[in-house]
Design a protein around this nucleic acid. Sequence first.
DNA 1: TTGTAAGCGTTATCAT
DNA 2: ATGATAACGCTTACAA
Lengths: 340, 340
Amino acid sequence: MEKQTTIKDIALALRLSTSTVSRALRDAPDVSLETRNAVKALAEELDYQPNKLALSLLKNQTNTIGVIVPNLDYIPATMVKGIDEVALEAGYTVMVCQSDESFGREILNTKRLLDSLVDGFIVSFSSETNVYDHIKKIQTKKIPLVLFDRVVDSFSVPKIRLDNAEGGRLATQHLIDQGYKRIAILAGPGNLNVSNDRKDGYLQVLKQNKIPIDKNLIINCDFNQDYAYIATKELLAMKKRPDAIFAISDRLALGAMLAIKEQGLKMPKDIGLCGFNNEPITQLLTPSISSIEMFAFEIGKATAKLFLEMLHSDADMSNKEIVIKPKLVVRESSKRLPGR
Amino acid sequence: MEKQTTIKDIALALRLSTSTVSRALRDAPDVSLETRNAVKALAEELDYQPNKLALSLLKNQTNTIGVIVPNLDYIPATMVKGIDEVALEAGYTVMVCQSDESFGREILNTKRLLDSLVDGFIVSFSSETNVYDHIKKIQTKKIPLVLFDRVVDSFSVPKIRLDNAEGGRLATQHLIDQGYKRIAILAGPGNLNVSNDRKDGYLQVLKQNKIPIDKNLIINCDFNQDYAYIATKELLAMKKRPDAIFAISDRLALGAMLAIKEQGLKMPKDIGLCGFNNEPITQLLTPSISSIEMFAFEIGKATAKLFLEMLHSDADMSNKEIVIKPKLVVRESSKRLPGR
DNA sequence: TTGTAAGCGTTATCAT
DNA sequence: ATGATAACGCTTACAA
């Protein structure tokens, strides 16, 4: 790694002081046109780049945002893309760390970013996380923090998330509208808001429609296709098997689909299926899978915007919460009535 | 953001000089046990964290690796995971920038990372890139650089990639072995090694098997499902239509599949299909799609290892090239003979 | 064993 | 209009 040109080099060459050079470079008003031009010309020639480290040390700010995501699957990757786009435009660089759904990695990532001296954090929790000391530490240090997607209510920090309950309602009501009577749910990990809220939506709609709730039809599980496959096999082996399945993620829906096909059941005739996330894959499968669009890119952009707003305004935003509305996307796996 | 505890704070509180504190903290031999303990205790109490910025400025090294990937789809995301894992273990932090297949973004990312003063670069090119001044700039500055996956031969820097030609051979030979006679190829963007090498493998095998090469069956295109769909429709509309398609990525295979299904053709009976990358989706589709496993995670890990090796050894590694062997995974879309 | 001082690259404050 | 100096947090000769 070669030595970079510094202000000193320029100053020396031009027999100026570093301060003058610094001023000239930044178009300060009180520097003669002559010197300014000379400085700029030489800077150009030597390919001078200001040293960000020195600047950061001085200003105590790195222009870097630490982003922690549970994984880099389609949805988080899309959100990161949104965050990155907005942050970049505002002159911030994003450091993305993925926790791989591991609490330990999440802690580690927090530490890493903390001592990388990021200007703030944008965090979405791993499915294992249910202790939040690492987050409290961020708060203690008064470092700006925004939670997104997989959030936790108990922290008074800005949050952005999908209206997951609404998503659950949309999916469940849709299945009911299509004439399904015994609707099971693959409900995801029990400690995530995204799981619980979607399940709550499901429960609400069942109640509204006076459909009795059968606990045997509610399966909590990892976001894991294999688990969904096994769970679905068990569901289908029941004496009174469900006639529809609401999987709270498309990955879970995939697992369910495999089990359904293996059982020789046909969608949507014998059994209905609705996923969540609206990943591209849902429209490619046969049958295509109904799902809930969650606007991941938009959530990402909104998150970064909210973060920057918090960073630059002094208003207290700790109770601000942005909730994005999901959209039902009906496909073959659950559509057995004409219309709609 | 609260002021962090510094060495100065500790020195002041303990009526020591900063150098003594610094030494005590780093277990230097020439500091009395007494002071060392006092310092460490207070450091613990005040939750002292060394300021990385100051250290970086001093040592002129950030312990950060800049990674540029063309996108965050399954394969690059998996590679990043591998890179991250190895880098983390070695005490390095990874800054990932995705170019979104845009040359402009790639330039921008290079700039960003360059003035973030990363210790080195790990780069995979966007599909638009065919001018390499930004890479030359990295080289001019003597900053360590490794290319991976989408590489370019003209640079004498360490490289890691799949044996793409072998992948092309495996896929094509497999289709021939299954009795397909007119094999088309969706060959991807013409300026990427991954495209050209896979196509070369295809051409080689056709020659070996004395199958005439028909230029109409060779389609160069973006890594874009929609394009593959359209191209396949055209292929199928030919008077002498192909009886098999080798798509050099699974995304392209998906597009092809949609067109094939729409045409009412059955795989593998009427037409064979083989993709590339072995993304999880290939085994979920109906029919499941044969593909080439490219060991993305391993490539990622190997890349980071090679990078670190280069960073820490003074041997000239500029001609080192690691080539990973792909593996054929046969699935329903191309298997019409028993056995194998 | 401990302290002093210089230096990493930059900017801000206060002279001149 | 320009320069000298201190400061950001830390390490490392060199001195004591």
